[in-house]
Design a protein around this nucleic acid. Structure first.
Length: 484
RNA sequence: GUCCCCGUGGUUCAACGGAUAGAACAUGGGAUUUCUAAUCCUAUGAUGGGGGUUCGAUUCCCUCCGGGGACACCA
């Protein structure tokens, strides 16, 4: 990976290497000289560094700019060499061992199965699914988990079919939802975890005894309370109600303990913005159980608004209820639904434009990306008689060709960055960037032509792009159509 | 009242404390004897207000304004 190699050359792994927005500032740049210079002139410090590295073949040039930035321009020889690696690694390209097999639990959707799946469930669902894909690609051992709230008063009501006008029983709803999740949303869970099992296996009793032993509980007004304020929560929380009934939180404590007992070093939970109040108390629980609060991480998904033009669509016309994920998927297709949901940062409210998502044209980024893939397949299909050069890609030196290779090489960094900060929207953005670089290349470079050597070099580049684009789409769970 | 998220061109969004704030859509102009024009090229246009920290702030801190959400012995 280019960035890591630069770090090695500089000799400092914690150096911040960034990708400047401006092309004249190189392919990569660093502000290291400005940080370490202290009272010395940053430019002089930068010069010393540059002297050490400027002869490296990786760079065409290394220059100092502005107050002391060091800008790196990657050499075309280096770029040309990268194609071979991509063609060899194929679907493994972009994978790494960064995670070293560390066990991570990703819990998502976990809707109360008291009704149909909402758009919010969809957003969290796709987010959790894709983050899991990314973590796996980076070498983590990931369990995708769905927590079934199959116990409690609401559930009892449901068994009688009384909840909010719902006509189905709880088990029917659960069955339907599981089917929608796996078939329509194409999400695969490793574990469907039953809340009830925590009671059957006495885990609730044991964790309650543990908290009591740690003197983190007290009785008040007939109820049993957890001293969550001791760990930064706004108020203490009830574990057992005055009626003797276990509060929901108690199950959550037992469930979290169960996850840690199964060896998960990190637990990520996707929740909707309306549940954010839950974070402080669960972080408190984590610490009370003797773990670090960083070992539990919440990703809060802000609300989804469905727009038709400028108007918000609240209710589904047919059912007269809130629009459900499966209705949306039926309306605009799974690929568009996933892409649009993934495109926004979790902190931003998601405005889903129905009209745009339905549009099968250049306005729609999903088709823009998929069209690039279809074009690649069309060209690639005609390439069967060509022999790729094994490692010599010197002929690829047009601006569009080199720009495309730079984009391909960036994939590893995109995955690495996303593993660190969970900003999943980087992936669809990258897909658009990559598709754009390809379309530009395609526009200005005839792939199959008179010059056999050039043709086969370009075909190799097309094949490499096909690999990376497919890997990117697969991370998002979006199909790669060979024809459109 | 307390807590969480957001405020960037006409619209929807980017930008790990960096250089001339980046895209897409919309709008104006242009490109096809060519492997898929669902494409490409080009023009216009933006950080809510006020303080502070910093060599440097869209980013961090304070405050105000505006929008959304949450504050049960519900989950």
């Amino acid at each position: 990976m280019v960035r890591n190699e630069i770090k090695k050359i500089i000799g400092n792994a914690s150096v911040l290497i960034e990708k400047p927005g401006e092309k004249t500032h190189g392919d990569y740049s660093t502000n290291i000289a400005m940080i370490i210079s202290g009272k010395k002139n940053p430019r002089e410090v930068a010069e010393k560094l540059v002297d050490k590295i400027k002869d490296n073949k990786m760079f065409e040039k290394v220059e100092i700019a502005g107050p002391g930035f060091i800008n790196f321009f990657i050499s075309k020889e280096y770029l040309q060499k990268q194609i071979k690696g991509i063609l060899e690694k194929k679907e493994k390209y972009g994978s790494s061992k960064t995670g070293k097999g560390l066990k991570i639990n990703v819990e998502f959707i976990s809707a109360n199965p008291t009704g149909p799946l909402t758009l919010g469930n969809g957003r969290g669902g796709f987010g959790g699914d894709v983050l899991s894909n990314i973590l796996e690609k980076a070498g983590y051992n990931v369990a995708r988990e769905f927590y079934i709230n199959d116990r409690g008063k609401q559930i009892e009501d449901l068994k009688k079919g009384l909840y909010k006008g719902e006509k189905r029983t709880v088990s029917q709803i659960q069955k339907t939802n599981q089917k929608i999740i796996t078939k329509d949303m194409k999400i695969k869970f490793d574990v469907w975890f039953s809340e009830k099992s925590l009671y059957k296996n006495k885990e609730v009793d044991r964790v309650l005894a543990l908290l009591k032993k740690k003197k983190l509980t007290y009785g008040k007004d007939d109820a049993l309370w957890f001293k969550s304020t001791k760990f930064g929560d706004d108020k203490d929380r009830v574990l057992i109600k005055g009626t003797g009934e276990e509060a929901y939180l108690l199950s959550d404590v037992a469930y979290l303990k169960n996850k840690f007992d199964r060896g998960f070093k990190k637990n990520i939970i996707f929740i909707g913005a309306d549940h954010h109040g839950y974070i402080k108390r669960m972080k408190a629980v984590t610490e009370a159980l003797g773990y670090k609060k960083e070992q539990l991480e919440f990703i809060v998904m802000q609300l989804v608004h469905l727009l038709e033009g400028k108007k918000e669509v609240r209710m589904s016309k047919r059912a007269g209820t809130y629009v459900t994920v499966n209705e949306l998927i039926n309306e605009v297709g799974l690929d568009a639904t996933r892409f649009f949901f993934l495109q926004r940062g979790s902190n931003s409210h998601l405005n889903f434009d129905l009209k745009l998502a339905k549009e099968k044209s250049s306005n729609n980024p999903v088709y823009y990306v998929q069209y690039a893939y279809a074009r690649i397949c069309a060209v690639s299909h005609k390439s069967e008689n060509f022999q790729f050069p094994i490692s010599n890609f010197q002929l690829l030196d047009k601006e569009e060709e080199l720009a495309l290779i730079k984009q391909l090489v960036r994939f590893e960094e995109v995955v690495e960055d996303t593993v660190k900060d969970y900003q999943i929207q980087r992936i669809p953005q990258y897909a658009i960037d990559l598709a754009e670089s390809f379309h530009r290349f395609y526009q200005s470079c005839q792939v199959i032509g008179e010059d056999k050597k050039l043709s086969s070099s370009r075909l190799a580049l097309v094949k490499a792009t096909q690999i990376v684009l497919k890997n990117t789409l697969e991370l998002m769970g979006i199909s790669s159509p060979s024809k459109m």
